[in-house]
């Protein structure tokens, strides 16, 4: 135990005893301040609870009255000491709700941009093709070939635009669903990173648009990580049912890493993935051993989907 924690523990014990001795609101105020200090010093909720529990245990041992009596009388003190954590927890809940709204707004914005890039920029380029044809017709025959490299470059630009817009927000995800979108994504990654990407889908139904988007983004992030860091030759993306859950897994045969030591290196990508999954009731597990590949597993409760789709 650190010195600061030992001091907190001592203050807790003495405040609890003074509460049990009848000092009333003064001790409750002290309990509140203790909770506040614990929160401020970064003490986790579990450590805080453990500390309080030990203080209570000591009081039970030291006091002449019966244990049940002490425990019952200590309740207001304990609740008071947790109250700052209640406040902080409400803040987290609110923040998550805001993040979720922001993420949804961002997804809508990306959808709009991808659409504009695909449709509007695409149309403009088609017009440039027509213009080139007109210029070609006005040129003497020997000069027409000179336009061919320009046309080829223009076609490259079109391809790139389409690729970028698809990766930003595949129309397949909106029109056809998660599986075709994942296949398309997998093909792109396979081509660029020269790895074999398999997409296996054991689900027999479409999920709500929100869940499909979250899963798509998770796979996108996972495949990006595999392509960048894993030095893998094969990666399998799998969606399946398991005890009332939808489980997404992404498994590669790359170099792996020590998840315990990834720390900050895990970066925003993983954190973002975890937060998005949490917003639909899911969790994220990462299993990896250096030299033995990485498996990323995200179980999501099916019940949540029903609730979400019913809300639409």
């Amino acid at each position: 135990m650190k010195d600061s924690e030992r001091m907190l523990a001592e203050r807790m014990t003495s405040a609890l005893n003074s509460y049990l001795d009848g000092s009333g609101e003064t001790a409750l105020h002290a309990a509140y301040e203790l909770g506040r200090d614990a929160l401020g010093s970064g003490l986790g909720l579990l450590s805080h609870a453990t500390m309080l529990d030990r203080a209570l245990l000591m009081a039970v041992r030291d006091r002449p009255e019966g244990a049940a009596d002490v425990i019952e009388r200590a309740e207001p003190f304990l609740i008071e000491a947790f109250s700052p954590f209640e406040m902080a927890q409400r803040a987290v809940r609110d923040t998550n709700a805001v993040l979720r709204r922001l993420d949804r707004a961002r997804e809508e914005e990306v959808k709009r941009l991808a659409h504009e890039l695909h449709d509007e920029a695409g149309q403009m380029l088609a017009v440039v093709h027509l213009d080139l044809d007109r210029v070609a017709n006005e040129l003497p025959p020997g000069f027409r070939d000179r336009l061919e490299p320009v046309r080829a470059r223009l076609r490259d630009v079109e391809l790139q635009l389409r690729r970028i817009s698809h990766e930003m927000r595949p129309t397949a995800l909106d029109d056809l669903g998660l599986l075709p979108a994942l296949r398309f994504l997998g093909e792109g990654v396979a081509r660029r990173a020269s790895i074999t990407v398999r997409v296996e889908d054991e689900l027999d139904r479409r999920l709500s648009p929100e869940v499909e988007t979250v899963l798509y983004r998770a796979v996108q992030e996972a495949l990006t990580n595999v392509a960048r860091h894993a030095e893998a030759t094969r990666v399998t993306v799998r969606l399946e049912h398991e005890d009332g859950l939808v489980v997404l897994s992404v498994t590669d045969d790359g170099v792996g890493f020590d998840p315990g030591r990834a720390g900050d290196g895990a970066g925003l990508g993983i954190t973002g993935m975890r937060e998005r999954l949490a917003s639909i009731g899911g969790t994220l597990e990462i299993r990896s051993t250096p030299g033995k590949g990485t498996m990323l597993r995200a179980p999501i409760p099916l019940v949540e989907h029903a609730a979400h789709s019913a809300g639409r």
Binding site: G40, P84, R90, A91
Partner: peptide
């Protein structure tokens, strides 16, 4: 806002009271 003061960063202070 939550991030404004030290208390606020923990979800306490005025933003905390507003939530309670």
């Amino acid at each position: 806002e939550d991030g404004y003061s030290t208390s606020g960063r923990l979800g306490l202070g005025l933003p905390g009271v507003r939530r309670l």
